[in-house]
Write a protein that binds this DNA or RNA. Structure first.
Lengths: 210, 210
DNA sequence: AGATGTGAATGAGTTCACAGCT
DNA sequence: AGCTGTGAACTCATTCACATCT
Protein backbone atom coordinates (compact mmCIF):
# COMPACT_ATOMS: atom_id res chain seq x y z
CA UNK A 1 0.00 0.00 0.00
CA UNK A 2 2.14 2.89 -1.25
CA UNK A 3 1.23 6.18 0.39
CA UNK A 4 -2.23 6.06 1.94
CA UNK A 5 -1.99 9.81 1.50
CA UNK A 6 -3.97 10.49 4.74
CA UNK A 7 -7.39 8.86 4.41
CA UNK A 8 -7.43 8.96 8.21
CA UNK A 9 -4.47 9.28 10.53
CA UNK A 10 -5.34 9.47 14.20
CA UNK A 11 -3.98 12.36 16.27
CA UNK A 12 -2.29 9.77 18.48
CA UNK A 13 -0.37 8.41 15.53
CA UNK A 14 0.73 11.91 14.55
CA UNK A 15 1.90 12.38 18.13
CA UNK A 16 4.01 9.28 17.95
CA UNK A 17 5.49 10.13 14.56
CA UNK A 18 6.62 13.39 16.08
CA UNK A 19 8.10 11.46 19.00
CA UNK A 20 9.93 9.03 16.70
CA UNK A 21 11.42 11.99 14.89
CA UNK A 22 12.76 13.34 18.18
CA UNK A 23 14.34 9.98 19.03
CA UNK A 24 15.89 9.59 15.60
CA UNK A 25 17.45 13.03 15.86
CA UNK A 26 19.13 11.95 19.08
CA UNK A 27 20.49 8.86 17.33
CA UNK A 28 21.80 10.95 14.46
CA UNK A 29 23.65 13.14 16.93
CA UNK A 30 25.33 9.97 18.18
CA UNK A 31 26.31 9.24 14.55
CA UNK A 32 24.18 6.10 14.43
CA UNK A 33 23.22 5.39 10.82
CA UNK A 34 21.01 2.33 10.99
CA UNK A 35 18.46 1.34 13.61
CA UNK A 36 15.93 -1.47 13.96
CA UNK A 37 12.47 -1.00 15.43
CA UNK A 38 13.53 -3.13 18.39
CA UNK A 39 16.60 -1.05 19.07
CA UNK A 40 14.52 2.12 18.88
CA UNK A 41 11.93 0.62 21.22
CA UNK A 42 14.52 -0.53 23.72
CA UNK A 43 16.37 2.79 23.84
CA UNK A 44 13.34 5.04 24.16
CA UNK A 45 10.87 2.73 25.86
CA UNK A 46 8.48 2.41 22.93
CA UNK A 47 6.74 -0.53 21.22
CA UNK A 48 8.64 -2.05 18.28
CA UNK A 49 5.48 -3.37 16.63
CA UNK A 50 3.77 -0.05 16.91
CA UNK A 51 6.70 1.76 15.36
CA UNK A 52 6.55 -0.57 12.37
CA UNK A 53 2.75 -0.27 12.06
CA UNK A 54 2.85 3.50 12.31
CA UNK A 55 5.52 3.80 9.66
CA UNK A 56 4.19 1.09 7.35
CA UNK A 57 0.93 2.90 6.79
CA UNK A 58 2.81 5.60 4.86
CA UNK A 59 5.13 3.41 2.80
CA UNK A 60 7.95 0.90 3.08
CA UNK A 61 10.72 2.87 4.70
CA UNK A 62 12.70 -0.03 6.18
CA UNK A 63 14.97 -2.71 4.79
CA UNK A 64 14.08 -6.24 5.85
CA UNK A 65 16.83 -7.95 7.71
CA UNK A 66 18.54 -4.62 8.36
CA UNK A 67 16.29 -1.96 9.84
CA UNK A 68 15.82 1.71 9.04
CA UNK A 69 18.30 4.23 7.72
CA UNK A 70 18.27 6.97 10.36
CA UNK A 71 18.90 9.96 8.08
CA UNK A 72 16.45 8.69 5.47
CA UNK A 73 13.72 8.01 8.02
CA UNK A 74 14.17 11.46 9.51
CA UNK A 75 13.59 12.91 6.04
CA UNK A 76 10.50 10.78 5.51
CA UNK A 77 9.04 11.79 8.87
CA UNK A 78 9.81 15.45 8.33
CA UNK A 79 8.01 15.23 5.03
CA UNK A 80 5.06 13.29 6.48
CA UNK A 81 4.63 15.78 9.29
CA UNK A 82 4.92 18.72 6.94
CA UNK A 83 8.16 19.83 8.59
CA UNK A 84 10.21 19.94 5.41
CA UNK A 85 9.36 23.56 4.89
CA UNK A 86 9.20 26.44 7.32
CA UNK A 87 5.81 27.38 8.74
CA UNK A 88 5.31 30.98 9.70
CA UNK A 89 3.63 31.77 12.99
CA UNK A 90 1.87 34.90 14.23
CA UNK A 91 1.29 35.47 17.95
CA UNK A 92 -1.84 37.30 19.03
CA UNK A 93 -1.44 38.81 22.50
CA UNK A 94 2.08 39.63 23.65
CA UNK A 95 1.77 39.13 27.40
CA UNK A 96 4.26 37.07 29.39
CA UNK A 97 3.28 33.88 27.64
CA UNK A 98 3.18 35.38 24.16
CA UNK A 99 6.61 36.86 24.74
CA UNK A 100 7.98 33.56 26.02
CA UNK A 101 6.65 31.72 22.98
CA UNK A 102 8.05 34.34 20.61
CA UNK A 103 11.51 33.45 21.91
CA UNK A 104 10.91 29.74 22.56
CA UNK A 105 13.47 27.63 20.65
CA UNK A 106 10.85 25.12 19.52
CA UNK A 107 8.88 27.95 17.89
CA UNK A 108 11.95 29.24 16.05
CA UNK A 109 13.53 26.26 14.35
CA UNK A 110 14.01 24.90 10.86
CA UNK A 111 10.30 24.14 10.59
CA UNK A 112 8.75 27.04 12.45
CA UNK A 113 9.38 30.73 12.75
CA UNK A 114 7.49 33.37 14.65
CA UNK A 115 7.32 36.15 12.08
CA UNK A 116 4.89 38.54 13.69
CA UNK A 117 3.02 39.47 16.84
CA UNK A 118 0.17 41.83 17.65
CA UNK A 119 -1.31 43.31 20.84
CA UNK A 120 -4.03 45.84 21.64
CA UNK A 121 -1.78 47.72 24.07
CA UNK A 122 -0.43 50.79 22.27
CA UNK A 123 2.52 50.94 24.68
CA UNK A 124 3.74 47.58 23.37
CA UNK A 125 3.36 48.45 19.68
CA UNK A 126 6.75 49.19 18.13
CA UNK A 127 8.73 47.18 20.70
CA UNK A 128 10.86 44.24 19.67
CA UNK A 129 9.81 40.74 20.75
CA UNK A 130 11.84 37.81 19.48
CA UNK A 131 12.70 38.52 15.85
CA UNK A 132 9.82 40.87 15.09
CA UNK A 133 8.35 44.24 16.03
CA UNK A 134 5.00 44.17 17.82
CA UNK A 135 2.16 45.61 15.76
CA UNK A 136 -1.31 46.69 16.71
CA UNK A 137 -4.10 44.10 16.79
CA UNK A 138 -6.19 46.22 14.42
CA UNK A 139 -3.57 45.51 11.76
CA UNK A 140 -3.95 41.72 12.14
CA UNK A 141 -5.25 41.08 8.63
CA UNK A 142 -2.51 43.20 7.05
CA UNK A 143 0.16 41.64 9.28
CA UNK A 144 -0.89 38.10 8.33
CA UNK A 145 -0.99 38.98 4.66
CA UNK A 146 2.40 40.69 4.52
CA UNK A 147 4.17 38.17 6.78
CA UNK A 148 2.64 35.11 5.17
CA UNK A 149 1.82 33.55 8.55
CA UNK A 150 -0.02 30.24 8.33
CA UNK A 151 -0.43 29.44 12.01
CA UNK A 152 -1.96 31.75 14.61
CA UNK A 153 -1.20 31.48 18.32
CA UNK A 154 -3.78 32.82 20.77
CA UNK A 155 -2.25 34.17 23.99
CA UNK A 156 -4.89 36.79 24.70
CA UNK A 157 -7.17 37.02 27.75
CA UNK A 158 -9.88 34.35 27.74
CA UNK A 159 -12.69 36.81 27.00
CA UNK A 160 -11.00 37.99 23.79
CA UNK A 161 -10.23 34.52 22.44
CA UNK A 162 -13.27 33.96 20.20
CA UNK A 163 -13.07 37.31 18.43
CA UNK A 164 -9.36 36.84 17.80
CA UNK A 165 -9.87 33.33 16.43
CA UNK A 166 -12.48 34.81 14.09
CA UNK A 167 -10.02 37.56 13.20
CA UNK A 168 -7.32 35.01 12.40
CA UNK A 169 -9.74 33.08 10.19
CA UNK A 170 -10.67 36.28 8.36
CA UNK A 171 -6.99 37.17 8.04
CA UNK A 172 -6.37 33.86 6.30
CA UNK A 173 -4.34 31.67 8.67
CA UNK A 174 -4.80 27.93 8.17
CA UNK A 175 -4.60 26.65 11.75
CA UNK A 176 -4.68 28.06 15.27
CA UNK A 177 -3.09 27.10 18.57
CA UNK A 178 -5.19 28.19 21.53
CA UNK A 179 -3.38 28.83 24.83
CA UNK A 180 -6.42 30.35 26.52
CA UNK A 181 -9.05 28.45 28.50
CA UNK A 182 -11.87 29.66 26.28
CA UNK A 183 -13.90 27.07 24.39
CA UNK A 184 -13.93 28.39 20.85
CA UNK A 185 -16.40 27.68 18.07
CA UNK A 186 -14.37 26.83 15.00
CA UNK A 187 -14.81 26.47 11.26
CA UNK A 188 -13.57 23.18 9.79
CA UNK A 189 -11.13 24.86 7.40
CA UNK A 190 -9.13 26.33 10.29
CA UNK A 191 -8.55 23.60 12.87
CA UNK A 192 -7.92 24.67 16.44
CA UNK A 193 -5.46 22.88 18.71
CA UNK A 194 -6.01 23.36 22.43
CA UNK A 195 -3.07 23.89 24.75
CA UNK A 196 -4.53 24.46 28.19
CA UNK A 197 -1.55 24.57 30.49
CA UNK A 198 -3.71 24.39 33.59
CA UNK A 199 -4.97 20.97 32.54
CA UNK A 200 -1.45 19.62 32.93
CA UNK A 201 -1.45 20.68 36.55
CA UNK A 202 -4.92 19.22 37.05
CA UNK A 203 -3.89 15.89 35.60
CA UNK A 204 -0.85 15.92 37.81
CA UNK A 205 -2.96 16.72 40.85
CA UNK A 206 -5.05 13.59 40.23
CA UNK A 207 -2.00 11.52 41.15
CA UNK A 208 -1.47 13.52 44.32
CA UNK A 209 -4.72 12.66 46.07
CA UNK A 210 -3.68 10.91 49.22
CA UNK B 1 -20.39 0.28 43.02
CA UNK B 2 -19.71 3.06 45.53
CA UNK B 3 -16.30 4.66 45.05
CA UNK B 4 -13.99 2.44 43.02
CA UNK B 5 -11.34 4.54 44.74
CA UNK B 6 -9.02 4.45 41.70
CA UNK B 7 -8.26 0.80 40.91
CA UNK B 8 -7.41 2.14 37.46
CA UNK B 9 -8.55 5.37 35.89
CA UNK B 10 -7.22 6.03 32.42
CA UNK B 11 -5.42 9.31 31.73
CA UNK B 12 -8.02 10.00 29.06
CA UNK B 13 -10.80 9.80 31.62
CA UNK B 14 -8.92 12.15 33.93
CA UNK B 15 -8.61 14.54 30.98
CA UNK B 16 -12.32 14.49 30.41
CA UNK B 17 -13.18 14.94 34.08
CA UNK B 18 -11.06 18.05 34.00
CA UNK B 19 -12.89 19.18 30.89
CA UNK B 20 -16.33 18.55 32.45
CA UNK B 21 -15.26 20.66 35.39
CA UNK B 22 -14.42 23.52 33.09
CA UNK B 23 -17.81 23.27 31.36
CA UNK B 24 -19.70 23.11 34.64
CA UNK B 25 -17.94 26.23 35.86
CA UNK B 26 -19.19 28.06 32.80
CA UNK B 27 -22.73 26.91 33.54
CA UNK B 28 -22.43 28.05 37.14
CA UNK B 29 -21.42 31.49 35.94
CA UNK B 30 -24.65 31.56 33.95
CA UNK B 31 -26.50 30.69 37.19
CA UNK B 32 -27.63 27.34 35.85
CA UNK B 33 -28.28 24.99 38.76
CA UNK B 34 -29.27 21.70 37.16
CA UNK B 35 -28.02 20.08 34.00
CA UNK B 36 -28.59 16.75 32.26
CA UNK B 37 -25.85 14.82 30.51
CA UNK B 38 -27.59 15.52 27.20
CA UNK B 39 -27.72 19.25 27.82
CA UNK B 40 -24.04 19.23 28.76
CA UNK B 41 -23.20 17.22 25.64
CA UNK B 42 -25.20 19.49 23.38
CA UNK B 43 -23.72 22.71 24.73
CA UNK B 44 -20.10 21.64 24.73
CA UNK B 45 -20.06 19.09 21.94
CA UNK B 46 -19.41 16.06 24.13
CA UNK B 47 -20.95 12.58 24.39
CA UNK B 48 -23.80 12.24 26.87
CA UNK B 49 -23.23 8.53 27.41
CA UNK B 50 -19.58 9.05 28.05
CA UNK B 51 -20.24 11.76 30.60
CA UNK B 52 -22.49 9.37 32.51
CA UNK B 53 -20.03 6.47 32.26
CA UNK B 54 -17.14 8.61 33.38
CA UNK B 55 -19.03 9.97 36.37
CA UNK B 56 -20.74 6.71 37.32
CA UNK B 57 -17.46 4.94 37.95
CA UNK B 58 -16.89 7.17 40.96
CA UNK B 59 -20.35 7.12 42.49
CA UNK B 60 -23.95 8.09 41.81
CA UNK B 61 -23.82 11.83 41.48
CA UNK B 62 -26.98 12.36 39.44
CA UNK B 63 -30.69 12.22 40.14
CA UNK B 64 -32.67 10.03 37.77
CA UNK B 65 -35.30 11.91 35.86
CA UNK B 66 -33.69 15.22 36.78
CA UNK B 67 -29.98 15.41 35.98
CA UNK B 68 -26.99 16.68 37.91
CA UNK B 69 -26.77 19.49 40.42
CA UNK B 70 -24.16 21.80 38.95
CA UNK B 71 -22.64 23.08 42.20
CA UNK B 72 -22.61 19.62 43.75
CA UNK B 73 -21.02 18.00 40.72
CA UNK B 74 -18.35 20.69 40.64
CA UNK B 75 -17.53 19.80 44.25
CA UNK B 76 -17.40 16.09 43.47
CA UNK B 77 -15.11 16.64 40.48
CA UNK B 78 -12.86 18.98 42.40
CA UNK B 79 -12.54 16.32 45.05
CA UNK B 80 -11.98 13.51 42.55
CA UNK B 81 -9.27 15.46 40.76
CA UNK B 82 -7.59 16.43 44.01
CA UNK B 83 -8.43 20.09 43.45
CA UNK B 84 -10.19 20.64 46.76
CA UNK B 85 -6.96 21.72 48.37
CA UNK B 86 -4.23 24.00 47.12
CA UNK B 87 -1.18 22.39 45.55
CA UNK B 88 2.06 24.28 45.85
CA UNK B 89 4.29 24.55 42.81
CA UNK B 90 8.00 25.32 42.46
CA UNK B 91 9.45 26.50 39.15
CA UNK B 92 12.98 25.46 38.26
CA UNK B 93 14.50 27.81 35.70
CA UNK B 94 13.16 31.36 35.53
CA UNK B 95 13.64 32.17 31.84
CA UNK B 96 10.88 33.67 29.74
CA UNK B 97 8.72 30.60 30.04
CA UNK B 98 9.33 30.09 33.76
CA UNK B 99 8.44 33.72 34.35
CA UNK B 100 5.29 33.45 32.24
CA UNK B 101 4.15 30.37 34.17
CA UNK B 102 4.88 32.01 37.50
CA UNK B 103 2.30 34.65 36.59
CA UNK B 104 -0.05 32.44 34.57
CA UNK B 105 -3.58 32.60 36.04
CA UNK B 106 -4.08 28.83 35.74
CA UNK B 107 -1.02 28.27 37.89
CA UNK B 108 -2.23 30.68 40.56
CA UNK B 109 -5.78 29.69 41.35
CA UNK B 110 -7.75 28.10 44.15
CA UNK B 111 -6.09 24.76 43.50
CA UNK B 112 -2.58 25.76 42.54
CA UNK B 113 -0.09 28.32 43.67
CA UNK B 114 3.43 28.96 42.52
CA UNK B 115 5.20 29.41 45.85
CA UNK B 116 8.83 29.40 44.79
CA UNK B 117 11.26 29.55 41.90
CA UNK B 118 14.97 28.92 41.48
CA UNK B 119 17.57 29.71 38.84
CA UNK B 120 21.34 29.27 38.51
CA UNK B 121 21.82 32.87 37.34
CA UNK B 122 23.02 34.90 40.34
CA UNK B 123 21.74 38.10 38.71
CA UNK B 124 18.19 36.78 38.90
CA UNK B 125 18.42 35.65 42.53
CA UNK B 126 16.62 38.10 44.81
CA UNK B 127 14.32 39.44 42.11
CA UNK B 128 10.57 39.14 42.38
CA UNK B 129 8.73 36.84 39.96
CA UNK B 130 5.01 36.39 40.41
CA UNK B 131 4.38 36.15 44.15
CA UNK B 132 7.82 34.91 45.20
CA UNK B 133 11.48 35.92 45.27
CA UNK B 134 13.81 33.95 43.02
CA UNK B 135 16.30 31.81 44.94
CA UNK B 136 19.44 30.06 43.82
CA UNK B 137 19.19 26.58 42.33
CA UNK B 138 21.68 25.27 44.89
CA UNK B 139 19.06 25.93 47.54
CA UNK B 140 16.44 23.76 45.79
CA UNK B 141 16.13 21.17 48.55
CA UNK B 142 15.78 23.84 51.24
CA UNK B 143 13.33 25.85 49.10
CA UNK B 144 11.10 22.82 48.54
CA UNK B 145 11.17 21.91 52.21
CA UNK B 146 10.36 25.37 53.52
CA UNK B 147 7.75 26.20 50.88
CA UNK B 148 6.06 22.81 51.01
CA UNK B 149 5.99 22.54 47.21
CA UNK B 150 4.54 19.27 45.90
CA UNK B 151 4.83 19.85 42.16
CA UNK B 152 8.00 20.82 40.33
CA UNK B 153 7.99 22.57 36.95
CA UNK B 154 11.04 22.18 34.73
CA UNK B 155 11.70 25.21 32.52
CA UNK B 156 15.48 24.84 32.33
CA UNK B 157 17.61 24.30 29.20
CA UNK B 158 17.23 20.79 27.78
CA UNK B 159 20.70 19.69 28.86
CA UNK B 160 20.00 20.48 32.52
CA UNK B 161 16.64 18.74 32.67
CA UNK B 162 17.67 15.31 33.99
CA UNK B 163 19.81 16.63 36.84
CA UNK B 164 17.05 19.00 37.90
CA UNK B 165 14.43 16.24 37.83
CA UNK B 166 16.74 14.21 40.05
CA UNK B 167 17.18 17.24 42.27
CA UNK B 168 13.43 17.68 42.58
CA UNK B 169 13.03 14.00 43.48
CA UNK B 170 15.73 14.35 46.14
CA UNK B 171 14.10 17.53 47.40
CA UNK B 172 10.86 15.62 47.94
CA UNK B 173 8.35 16.85 45.34
CA UNK B 174 5.68 14.32 44.39
CA UNK B 175 5.21 15.06 40.69
CA UNK B 176 6.97 17.00 37.94
CA UNK B 177 5.84 18.88 34.85
CA UNK B 178 8.49 18.88 32.14
CA UNK B 179 8.44 21.78 29.66
CA UNK B 180 11.79 20.86 28.11
CA UNK B 181 12.30 18.55 25.15
CA UNK B 182 14.59 16.23 27.12
CA UNK B 183 13.54 12.61 27.59
CA UNK B 184 13.92 12.05 31.30
CA UNK B 185 14.40 8.80 33.19
CA UNK B 186 11.95 8.81 36.05
CA UNK B 187 11.28 6.96 39.27
CA UNK B 188 7.73 5.62 39.69
CA UNK B 189 7.09 7.56 42.90
CA UNK B 190 7.50 10.90 41.12
CA UNK B 191 5.50 10.80 37.88
CA UNK B 192 6.57 13.11 35.10
CA UNK B 193 4.08 14.83 32.82
CA UNK B 194 5.45 15.99 29.46
CA UNK B 195 4.47 19.37 28.05
CA UNK B 196 6.40 19.77 24.84
CA UNK B 197 5.07 22.94 23.29
CA UNK B 198 6.82 22.28 19.99
CA UNK B 199 4.78 19.12 19.53
CA UNK B 200 1.65 21.23 19.33
CA UNK B 201 3.09 23.08 16.38
CA UNK B 202 4.18 19.82 14.77
CA UNK B 203 0.74 18.32 15.13
CA UNK B 204 -0.72 21.46 13.65
CA UNK B 205 1.74 21.34 10.76
CA UNK B 206 0.52 17.85 9.89
CA UNK B 207 -2.80 19.37 8.85
CA UNK B 208 -1.06 21.98 6.72
CA UNK B 209 0.61 19.64 4.24
CA UNK B 210 -0.81 20.55 0.92
C1' DA C 1 -42.23 11.20 31.58
C1' DG C 2 -37.56 11.78 31.79
C1' DA C 3 -33.07 11.13 33.20
C1' DT C 4 -29.48 8.20 35.25
C1' DG C 5 -26.58 4.07 35.54
C1' DT C 6 -25.02 -0.11 33.20
C1' DG C 7 -24.56 -4.76 30.66
C1' DA C 8 -24.03 -5.84 25.84
C1' DA C 9 -22.44 -4.59 21.25
C1' DT C 10 -19.53 -2.18 18.55
C1' DG C 11 -15.38 0.13 17.21
C1' DA C 12 -10.63 1.77 17.71
C1' DG C 13 -6.08 0.87 18.90
C1' DT C 14 -2.45 -2.29 20.22
C1' DT C 15 -0.01 -6.56 20.36
C1' DC C 16 0.95 -11.17 18.55
C1' DA C 17 2.84 -14.16 15.41
C1' DC C 18 4.53 -15.20 11.22
C1' DA C 19 5.07 -14.88 6.06
C1' DG C 20 8.25 -12.70 3.07
C1' DC C 21 12.19 -10.15 1.83
C1' DT C 22 17.43 -9.01 2.15
C1' DA D 1 19.78 -15.29 10.33
C1' DG D 2 17.44 -11.12 11.04
C1' DC D 3 14.18 -7.63 10.51
C1' DT D 4 10.28 -5.61 8.18
C1' DG D 5 5.42 -5.46 7.03
C1' DT D 6 0.84 -7.28 8.04
C1' DG D 7 -3.45 -10.26 8.80
C1' DA D 8 -5.46 -12.12 12.98
C1' DA D 9 -6.21 -11.95 17.95
C1' DC D 10 -6.78 -9.32 21.58
C1' DT D 11 -7.46 -5.38 24.68
C1' DC D 12 -9.18 -1.10 25.74
C1' DA D 13 -12.60 2.66 24.90
C1' DT D 14 -16.90 4.28 23.20
C1' DT D 15 -21.64 3.88 21.96
C1' DC D 16 -26.13 1.60 22.15
C1' DA D 17 -30.15 0.28 24.34
C1' DC D 18 -32.74 -0.43 28.16
C1' DA D 19 -33.85 -1.55 33.06
C1' DT D 20 -34.21 1.37 37.01
C1' DC D 21 -35.24 5.08 39.75
C1' DT D 22 -37.51 9.91 40.93
Amino acid sequence: MPFTSSAETSPQTVNRLSLYLRCLRQLRELHIQKVSSQELARRFDLSATQIRKDLAQFGEFGIRGVGYDVAQLIDHLRSLLGLDRRHKVVIVGIGNLGLALAQYPGFNSTSFQVVAGVDIDHDKVGRKAGAFTIQHAEELAAVVRSSGAEIGVLTVPEAAAQENYDGLVQAGVRAVLNFTRARIRTVPEVPLKEVDLRIYLEETAFFLRR
